[in-house]
């Protein structure tokens, strides 16, 4: 458990993001537009030097949540507090300062960089924008040092190269190094390894872990790969249709998931051990539409445990004895 005395670096309170549904016929004119609930009320806290995993199926809102946290998008409701300050206020006051506090690493390293700039140009630009370093020579030296520390040697050579000359793993490392040059408070890593070959994934994962440990940056790791999340993150949140259904210590949740969705998700994860006795919980169908998912639990129509109550009311978040929170009618505190 994170130190309770310490104030969280990030605190999300009731964050929601709705999108208006586009299109519609003439008949719908004058009617209230239908809303797609991408993120539907998320609360959590993130501490210094912590890697927080977010897992869930595609379309569950995990990437939208990441974008909301670094304010690439405005939340429809709720707010995110950085060290107690509202991000909305921070953005109004000094957007540049805010952007320096939060950084992101995205899934596809080949799309991250401008193809006609050299790596040196790409890495120095944020430094210049934020007025770090007195001259370009000084900035170049900073980039060189960052590359050397990140294991990309000889660094001077890398600075003169173009993105297409490098492999995906190298580009992803540069992407991480570049965001860390600004010494952010918080980093969102959205599927940082899913595009890469298995043999280089470990490098990227270790790099994130090292940075988190040495610079005390809070990292949110968004991934659909539960094994990766288990490996790096101390705490994990499981999302389903825009809401967190279970959140707590990673090992506790993976070994003993309480929410039926988490149970199904984990049991469906293939393992590389062919001898492992696996009883996959089969869940039928697909998630319901994120437009008005209904009053009951969003997972109820696919849940193997669902009863009448589940279709009537959305289960509240309950804190369990082991500290995790679960939102399921069947998870009572005394289990």
């Amino acid at each position: 458990m994170p130190d309770a005395v310490k104030a969280p670096v990030i605190k999300a309170v009731g964050v929601k993001r709705y999108y208006k549904q586009r299109g519609g016929s003439l008949l719908s004119f004058g009617r209230k537009p239908r809303m797609i609930q991408a993120v539907d009320g998320v609360d959590f806290e993130l501490y210094e030097g912590e890697i927080f995993g977010v897992i869930g199926e595609s379309g569950c809102g995990k990437s939208t949540l990441g974008r909301l946290l670094i304010r690439l998008e405005e939340p429809s409701e709720g707010d995110i507090y950085f060290r107690g300050e509202s991000s909305k206020a921070l953005m109004k006051k000094d957007p540049k300062k805010f952007h320096r506090m939060v950084q992101a690493v995205f899934q596809n390293p080949f799309d991250t960089f401008t193809p006609n700039d050299t790596i040196g140009e790409i890495m120095m630009r944020p430094l210049r924008l934020h007025g770090i370093g007195k001259s370009d020579e000084e900035r170049r030296a900073m980039c060189e040092k960052a590359l050397e520390d990140g294991g990309l040697k000889p660094a001077a050579d890398f600075l003169g190269r173009f993105p297409h000359e490098l492999s995906g793993g190298q580009l992803q490392r540069i992407s991480i190094l570049r965001s860390m040059l600004l010494e952010p408070l918080f980093l969102v890593a959205d599927e940082p390894v899913s595009m890469l070959d298995v043999s280089v994934r470990a490098e990227i994962i270790h790099m994130l872990q090292d940075l988190c440990a040495s610079r005390r940056t809070a990292i949110m790791l968004i991934s659909h790969d539960i094994a990766v999340v288990r490996y790096v993150s101390q705490r994990v949140a499981v999302m389903y249709l825009g809401r967190i259904v279970e959140m707590g210590d990673t090992d506790t949740i993976i070994q003993n998931p309480m929410h039926p969705y988490t149970q199904a998700l984990i049991s469906n994860c293939s393992s590389i051990d062919p001898d492992e006795d696996k009883q996959a919980i089969e869940i039928q169908g697909e998630p319901p539409s994120p437009i008005n998912p209904g009053p009951g639990c969003y997972f109820a129509n696919r849940c193997f445990k669902a009863c009448e109550k589940c279709f009537k009311s959305y289960p509240p978040m309950r804190t369990m004895k082991d500290g995790r929170v679960v939102s399921c009618h069947f998870a009572t505190g005394d289990e």
Partner: peptide
């Protein structure tokens, strides 16, 4: 280089 889901966390 494959992290496993169960058992001990071996170094990747």
């Amino acid at each position: 280089s494959f992290p496993s889901l169960h058992g001990k966390k071996e170094e990747l």
